[in-house]
């Protein structure tokens, strides 16, 4: 019976081969093809001009991820210590904004951050000089943190809430200061949540093109913008677009590999 049940997975295995594997193979094939289909490496050498886009994308994504972690971690811990009914309500409150279209929410930040926007009106009311945020990297970071913060809070919360309280109490009983208990017990145990939070924020942040176009005013071109332009935009060149996508995918994979490596090491340290 178990044998026969296995075959239930067959249709989806075929589906994956066509719609998951084949697209990635196609990206790789296009990346090494010239416009008339011959093998070439010119797509990769052409990418040299876009080095600044790569570094800017990764820098902004790393900053946003760090900010999300700094803001999200305490929130996840606060949530985990609430009563179970309160936890439910708070998680709902964190997820609810995701039901409003994210383009529209990002667009709303334009109204808030614009030079004549709501924030500067409020500041003028308080006699504080206006801030110039819109169309700067700061605006893009605000947009990223805003959009991806729930992706940091939820995985950390779901790990922290399962931490055995008796471990923390034991550490306290053995004379650990609050800081030491956090550094040596709570934080290492929450690391799996932190790592998945970092991935869930970093990947969309490094590849976004909407946030940079809306809040960065098109001045701050990111990897996402560059790829989008090659496929649907003015600079139609799917071969170059594929090459950029491929490199981005590989760099992100390497990044994640080291993250997980680092995570495994920590796990072992805790066990020892």
């Amino acid at each position: 019976m178990t044998n026969r049940r296995r075959f239930l997975a067959v249709p989806y295995i075929v589906w994956m081969a066509v719609f998951v594997i084949a697209p990635i193979v196609l990206i790789a094939v296009y990346a090494f093809a010239s416009r008339d289909g011959a093998f070439t490496l010119s797509n990769f050498s052409a990418m040299g001009t876009y080095l600044s886009v790569f570094s800017r994308s990764f820098l902004l994504a790393i900053i946003s991820t760090v900010v999300c972690l700094i803001l999200g971690y305490p929130l996840a811990v606060i949530f985990a210590h609430e009563t179970s009914r309160m936890q439910k309500i708070m998680i709902m409150l964190i997820m609810l904004p995701m039901w409003m279209n994210f383009l529209l929410r990002t667009y709303a930040w334009m109204s808030i951050l614009e030079s004549n926007g709501l924030l500067n009106r409020a500041l003028a009311f308080l006699h504080i000089p206006p801030l110039n945020i819109i169309n700067t990297p700061a605006a893009v970071i605000i947009g990223m943190v805003y959009n991806f913060l729930p992706f940091m809070v939820l995985p950390i919360y779901s790990v922290v809430v399962k931490i055995d309280r008796s471990l923390v109490e034991a550490a306290q009983d053995l004379g650990g200061s609050p800081a030491a208990v956090f550094r040596r017990v709570t934080f290492p145990l929450s690391l799996p949540g932190v790592l998945s939070g970092i991935t869930m924020v970093f990947v969309p942040a490094v590849s976004t093109f909407v946030i940079s176009q809306l809040l960065g005013g098109g001045k701050e071109m990111l990897l996402g913008d560059l790829i989008e332009m090659q496929f649907l935009g003015t600079a139609y060149n799917p071969q170059l677009g594929s090459a950029i996508s491929l490199v981005m995918m590989i760099v992100v994979m390497i990044f994640m590999y080291f993250m997980n490596k680092f995570g495994e090491g920590e796990d072992k340290a805790v066990l020892m």
């Binding site: 697209p23 990635i24 991935t199 990947v203 490094v206 093109f209 790829i227 996508s245 992100v252």
Partner: peptide, 19 residues
Amino acid sequence: NNIPLINADIITGVGMCLL
């Protein structure tokens, strides 16, 4: 199975577009 979850949306989108 995890590939579409881990990959950036834009890569999934671009790959499917090519396909």
